[in-house]
Design a protein around this nucleic acid. Structure first.
Length: 249
DNA sequence: AAGGAGTACAACCGCCGAGAA
DNA sequence: ATTCTCGGCGGTTGTACTCCT
């Protein structure tokens, strides 16, 4: 899947393309020892022939221990649709509300699946390959969201995004709350949570001043998550971000 | 069985902002 | 004050895979 061939950037002597298991292990070992961040330093010190950006991407999208593998669940899909309605293409922020999911994964998911479903001419058509996905997403959920926001069709997503540009001043660097032991060893994991919560708090407060109705938004989540079993009740928005996620059994 | 079309997703690219030098 | 480096983000690309005809 993805890019198949490995090749070298002759200008910089950097390797590109698919990662092999040895490279993955080097990154894992380094992070375990030194924590995340300083990706360029990682490359230099380990002799990994990858640029820092590439290493960072590999870690965030594939190697992180808290990554959730598998298909997007119905619950997650509902959340994605509603968060996208609020935030637009702010994938890192959306991913920050879906523990274990990456912005890349959500972006791919949206581009390949949800947007197609939101097309008004064929909103509920099931894609051919959906049979492959064991827990295929809920068409009803997406259709309902499309009904809520019929302006969110493929043709005008960019216009919608302009409406969200008002949020660009926020600290968006808190998108993903990393929870691995390695990160906590480094002392940054808890801070990440705190900053995440702070951001979310600010976001909810600022939302009050926009055309989006924050109380309506909160009601939506309450209805969604409290209607399911084993859901932690939605508290105020200063609580941990897991407060809107069902517990895992 | 083979070829074409559509899909999933890993990875790259370009831009931007923050902090260091 | 300016330049450089690095990390982060969203957009896009490219290929393996799957299904349909």
């Amino acid at each position: 899947m993805g890019r198949s061939s490995t090749y070298y950037d002759k200008h910089q002597g950097l390797k590109k393309g698919v990662w092999d298991p040895k490279e993955d292990q080097i990154v894992k070992d380094y992070v375990k020892k030194h924590g995340v961040g300083k990706w360029s330093k990682l490359s230099r010190e380990t002799g990994l022939k990858r640029c820092g950006k590439s290493v960072r991407l590999r870690w965030l999208n594939y190697l992180r221990p808290d990554i959730v593998r598998g298909n997007i669940t119905e619950d997650e899909e509902e959340l994605i649709v509603r968060l996208h309605k609020l935030l637009g293409n702010r994938w890192s922020l959306i991913a920050g509300r879906l523990p274990g999911r990456t912005d890349n994964e959500i972006k791919n998911y949206w581009n390949s699946f949800v947007k197609r479903k939101l097309q008004p001419e064929n909103p509920l058509e099931v894609p051919r390959n959906e049979k492959i996905r064991e827990d295929s997403p809920s068409s009803a959920a997406v259709a309902a969201a499309a009904e809520d926001s019929p302006h969110l069709t493929e043709n005008n997503v960019n216009e919608e995004e302009d409406d969200h540009n008002q949020y660009h001043d926020f600290d968006v660097g808190v998108g993903v709350a990393v929870e691995s032991d390695a990160i906590n060893d480094n002392g940054s994991g808890d801070d990440e949570h705190l900053r995440d919560d702070l951001w979310w708090n600010n976001f909810m407060m600022d939302l009050n001043g926009t055309e989006c109705n924050v109380s309506e938004f909160q009601t939506d989540f309450t209805e969604i998550w409290e209607s399911k079993e084993n859901v932690i009740p939605v508290g105020d928005c200063s609580t941990d971000h897991h407060d809107i996620m069902p517990t895992n059994n």
